[in-house]
Every structure is written in structure tokens, then in C-alpha cells.
Design a protein around this nucleic acid. Structure first.
Lengths: 137, 137
DNA sequence: TCTATATGCTACTTGTTTGTAGTATTTAAT
DNA sequence: ATTAAATACTACAAACAAGTAGCATATAGA
């Protein structure tokens, strides 16, 4: 499992926001806590808005707040929006077409493991993280 | 799980060679079966040689043959040589330091899952693939 | 209406991975 | 020795991800 930096940052941002999920968060307050550069963070925020995870409010007193319930934002949802989940659930050897009918050498072993991976990504969401574990950003 | 193309190709090449593991394989014969360009394939072959998976024989009648027993070449070994296994066994959120003492929000959930991932990668090797499953390259 | 404080958009730069091209080296066989 | 058939090396090009810079837009409040 190795996500793109942008996806990693997106998850960190959402987790940070989830700590005070009712509050409106500004880009400024987020980048002071997470170590992400101003412009890079802003681009990610805009993408998170377009993907429907958060809502943005422009102008003074503006910022971002959740557009969905925390339990409706899983790791899989975020990965899927930024990279596409298929990227991680596809064939280990990278074959376009790899199925029971036309398997690669690792297909059957991987298939079994993969269902656990997908389950992990889909069931781990912003609501079932332990608050006391949210220590670092 | 999403490996780099070079790692995917390396695994495909090794699996292809493992079909006739005693034979000496030329780059030419490999690229005729796998869809990899001549120069790219040759670079990968040289790397596989340097990493000690195969031995190269230069000159006429030359080629490549296994330098190790098939059971001693696991997916994890190949990933580790080309990309470093830590890349995939590290923190999901990409934190440098992430441990029981200093966990990220997903640490405990991921930790449990990760041990299965590592086990899968370490136990799946070139000897325990079913020959009849080697259909595609 | 003006200003301060927010987010949004477009273009550029840098770094890494992927893929290509050309040339050099090695060696069995004649 | 020469040739043919193989691998090795170095440099470059293209594609993509990561990161930066500057200007545009929106809006609450004085």
C-alpha cells in the first residue's frame, strides 16, 4: 500500500478537520498544523470540495466544513476520488485483463488477499478513528 | 497494492523464466513473449542480474539463468530490490515516524492488516505458483 | 463603498518514473 | 583473426506527480 502524496495529504486534512467536525476550518489554520505548503494545500482543498467531501465558503469568515457525515467518508472513497480504487484492486502484475477465466500467475492468491484489502479501505472511515489516536499531523 | 511498472515487468520476466527454470533465456526470446521494448527489457535484465536473482552470460550463446532457487525468490524480495519493501509496509498516511507510541489515526487498524500484506508478499514466491496458471505474459 | 480576509484559477518549475537511441563490450564458432 | 550473436553502458526524451508563484474572485463588516 503506497498512496500518492496528494491522497495522503487529503486524508490527513480530513482527519484533522474531523477532530472538530462541526467547525469551519480555514486553509490558514490547516496549514499551520499540517506541514503542507500554502498553494499545494489550497489546490487539495479545492479538489476535496469538487469531489463533494467538503463545502467551501468564500470571502471573509469563510473556510471549509464537511459536506457529508464522517461515517460516509472512508479511505476507499478518498482514494477513489483522487486516484481511482481500481489502481489498487487490480492485478498485482499490472495486467489489464486478469480474471478467473484468464488469470495471471498470482491471480488466485492475490484475489483472496485483495478482498481483505478492499474491506479494510471501505470500512475504515473518519468516524471510526479513535479521537485519542489523533495525535499527529 | 500498486507496484511500479519496472517491478511488475521484473516479476513477469522472472515468472516467464521460471516456466523453464533450467534453461538459459535470451533477452530476445523474452521480449518476443512479453510485451516489453528491447532497451527497457535489457535494462531490467541487467538490474535483475545486479540484484542477484539471475546470472548473465555475455557473448554468443549467452543469456540469463537463475542464480537462486525458485523458492528463494518471493514477491517481497523483488519489490525490496527495486523499490524497498518499507515503501509498502510503512504508515498509510505517509508519516516517517508512526508507531504504537506515536500512532497516526489509522495506525492500529493498519498495523493488523499490514502483517497480512507482508506475509502475502513474503510467502508468494516463484516456486509456489501453479504452472497451469502461467498463461499470460 | 472600501478593506481585510477568505477561496479559485492558470501557468510554471522541479523531480521521478518510464521509455528510447546509439554505441561499446564480450565470446562461441568458423 | 573475423564474424555473428549476445549483454552492458550512457545519455536523452516523454509522461506524470509534486510543488511553487501570481493574479482573480468572493464576501463580511466597518
Amino acid at each position: 500500500m503506497k498512496l500518492q502524496k496528494t491522497t495522503e495529504y487529503s486524508l490527513r486534512i480530513l482527519i484533522y478537520m474531523a477532530k472538530e467536525s462541526e467547525k469551519i476550518h480555514t486553509a490558514k489554520s490547516i496549514l499551520e498544523n499540517l506541514n503542507i505548503s500554502d498553494k499545494y494545500l489550497r489546490r487539495i482543498m479545492t479538489q476535496l470540495t469538487k469531489f463533494g467531501f467538503i463545502t467551501s465558503v468564500q470571502g471573509k469568515e469563510g473556510g471549509y466544513f464537511f459536506a457529508k457525515k464522517l461515517e460516509d467518508i472512508s479511505i476507499a472513497d478518498v482514494i477513489n476520488a483522487f486516484e481511482g480504487l481500481e489502481k489498487y484492486s487490480g492485478c498485482v502484475l499490472g495486467f489489464e485483463e486478469c480474471s478467473d477465466e484468464n488469470p495471471c500467475a498470482f491471480h488466485y492468491k492475490w484475489k483472496e488477499f485483495r478482498s481483505n484489502l478492499i474491506k479494510f479501505l471501505k470500512t475504515t472511515n473518519l468516524s471510526n478513528i479513535e479521537v485519542e489516536q489523533i495525535l499527529k499531523f
